[in-house]
Design a binder for these strands. Sequence first.
DNA 1: GTCTATATGCTGATAGAC
DNA 2: GTCTATCAGCATATAGAC
Lengths: 190, 190
Amino acid sequence: MTKPTAANRRTQLLDAAAGCFSRDGFEAASMRAIADEASMRTASIYYHFESKDDLLVAVHEEALRRISEATGAALHAHDDPWERLENACAAHLETLLTGGNYFTAVMAQVPSRVEGREMIFKMRDDYESIFSELVADLELPPDTDKDTLRLMLLGAMNWTFTWWHRDRDPKPRTLAMRFVSNLRTSLDLS
Amino acid sequence: MTKPTAANRRTQLLDAAAGCFSRDGFEAASMRAIADEASMRTASIYYHFESKDDLLVAVHEEALRRISEATGAALHAHDDPWERLENACAAHLETLLTGGNYFTAVMAQVPSRVEGREMIFKMRDDYESIFSELVADLELPPDTDKDTLRLMLLGAMNWTFTWWHRDRDPKPRTLAMRFVSNLRTSLDLS
DNA sequence: GTCTATATGCTGATAGAC
DNA sequence: GTCTATCAGCATATAGAC
């Protein structure tokens, strides 16, 4: 039995916001709907959060905290740089695709007028720097552009949320392995 | 000197809609703003389009018509399957990144309540089938999953619109070549 | 075809009681 | 901390004159 505290009411509200943003999109989600889903009145939200924009930033913070933790854990699990990359990709993709509302909410485009937009982009960049390090440790052909490689891999992974369905498509880990394998080996037999 | 006709007023309206959707996002863009940008009154829009949703579908139609034309033209330009793929990717990426408002508008998530959502997804699928054919023609190692390969490539390309800036990053064609090259050759030197 | 005028409803946010 | 009540504004869409 948990006592209701300011902290867990805030969490409850954040969950509700993630759910609404993820289902309806940020603009179409209303403060009323978020309040409903958290069993509160609209006005009560403003005790915990300054504004709707503030709520979006907080959802991003939580999502990036979670995925940083998951991907970061894979970082020191192996010696071989390619294996480290594989594992980080698997963690990234698993979190993204099966991590629930927070990630669906975060993968949408951030509307241009949102206060705190810059902070959101900064948090993303910070997280993605994990992949810069992973790619930097690879031994690559001298003409390979490492930025392009990192962005290619992140793009392939991040785009999956537009098409991936749990019941139809390969498991996130399988997908991650295939992505890395396609890069690592030569696909040209001709 | 062009006479104002229903057809070119419609085009003007479509351009305005693409601009507003691309700048503000679909939900945040208002019919007033679209009308303003087309130098009309709000009510006049409804002579040409049934609803705001209808406008979004029309913008998608036009965008997909344009990119299909560009990418399709690259399809028969070469004999070698890898060269054909390279060229189709270059065309896809060039159109996406330098094709203006229509593509910025189309790359955003389609809100779940939009009437005509299914039609939009069908148009996308139809377009992307070009890449299924291109990948089908490649000679690949027997354990390569062709769906994963296609989706990986399309993901890498489509995600570029979240980070690419004209003044900072490589030209679309260069990027496309690097993407394909990363797949075609082996990156693992160890 | 485009206009003016307006219906109807929902929006984010605030004031102030409890 | 949460509530009731409400503000002021903007949304999409329609009616009907011209």
